[in-house]
């Protein structure tokens, strides 16, 4: 059951190929992420699927409708939250939602019910009659998510839903996204350059770079493609013997030894299950382990593996320095 399927979709602006023959399918009800650095072509892809941009070539169907021919039909069945805020600051929260509901042709009774429902969902009911001008960035974002859902779309597009928001607000937004995916059973397409966001939210991710899709899979499977978890050990004595013993075990895929500082790096499938076994073996051989550390591959490792550089290296403007700082503040999982 694919609600979106695109094949060789391409968009060219003058000399720049922003999106270069991309293909993927989105299943009904999943959260699908487009992950990539700024300028990778994420927004261009979304704009083509939302019929805001006409593709240069390729094939795309959204909810059974062709992006070239049935623009109005597609627009009815999608909700969209833009990267930049798109609210009218002279209107109140409720009026912004009313505007949206009316322009999508909803009847008054249904409209009012739905607006209340959505304001509740994003916990903005008590702010409903305040002007948007006084809202914080996070409140605006929540209201926009609510607005995108008013007309009961089948697919919700979120373009960088937490861009520029602080850590706490970001987590809140993730909560809402998860909630509405379950509660409203809606398919969600989101673009992001935050690895943690893609990891936390998405059922499947397409990594996009320079307008091309590098790989598409679930975050779990993408990480698995790297071969497994890394266990690093620092041991006290009998280094070579232990290394040889470990090398003989089949469940350890790879053993890397660094004799100088007595470090061993083991690649295993399930690190947390492997550690007790390794400790047991060490005790049996009377080997003393000083340190033990488990590193589960992150999406960052996946990104580096597939694109050859980290997502931060790809983004070269000053804004990113701030975001790097922010990332450091995120507590480890």
């Amino acid at each position: 059951m694919c609600i979106i399927s695109i094949k060789n979709l391409t968009k060219q602006f003058d000399n720049l190929v922003a999106v270069d023959h991309i293909s993927f399918k989105v299943k009904k009800g999943e959260i699908f992420g487009l992950l990539g650095p700024n300028g990778a072509g994420k927004t261009t892809t979304v704009n083509m699927l939302c019929t805001l941009l006409t593709p240069t070539s390729g094939y795309a169907k959204v909810d059974e409708h062709d992006v070239y021919k049935n623009k109005v039909e597609i627009r009815k069945s999608i909700g969209l939250v833009f990267q930049e805020p798109a609210l009218d600051s002279y209107l109140t929260a409720r009026e912004n939602l009313e505007f949206h509901a009316m322009i999508y042709g909803m009847e008054k009774k249904e409209r009012n019910k739905r607006i209340d429902e959505m304001l509740n969902l994003v916990e903005l009911k008590d702010k409903a009659d305040e002007l948007i001008g006084n809202f914080s960035g996070g409140m605006k974002r929540r209201l926009e998510i609510a607005r995108g859902l008013i007309h009961k779309p089948k697919i919700l597009f979120l373009d960088e839903p937490t861009l520029g928001l602080d850590v706490q607000t970001r987590r809140h937004i993730w909560g809402y996204i998860n909630k509405l995916n379950k509660k409203e059973k809606i398919t969600i397409i989101l673009t992001t350059h935050y690895l943690e966001e893609a990891d936390r939210l998405c059922d499947r991710i397409a990594i996009i770079d320079h307008g091309r899709i590098i790989v598409t899979d679930s975050p779990h499977k993408l990480k698995e493609k790297l071969g497994g978890d890394i266990i690093s050990l620092k041991i006290n004595n009998n280094f070579s013997r232990f290394a040889n013993e470990l090398g003989r075990l089949k469940w350890i895929r790879e053993v890397k030894a660094s004799k100088g500082n007595m470090n061993l790096f083991l690649t295993v499938k399930e690190g947390n299950r492997a550690i007790p076994k390794i400790v047991y073996l060490a005790q049996k051989l009377k080997i003393k382990i000083n340190e033990i550390d488990l590193h589960k591959p992150s999406l960052e490792d996946v990104f580096v593996h597939f694109t050859g550089s980290s997502i931060r290296e790809r983004e070269n403007n000053g804004k990113l320095k701030l975001e790097n700082l922010r990332k450091k503040m995120v507590p480890a999982k």
């Binding site: 109005v72 039909e73 627009r75 930049e84 798109a86 609210l87 009218d88 505007f99 322009i103 999508y104």
Partner: peptide
């Protein structure tokens, strides 16, 4: 400039 045009443009009208 303030983004609201997109909200109108993407509406099915």
């Amino acid at each position: 400039e303030f983004g609201f045009l997109k909200e109108i443009t993407v509406a099915p009208i």
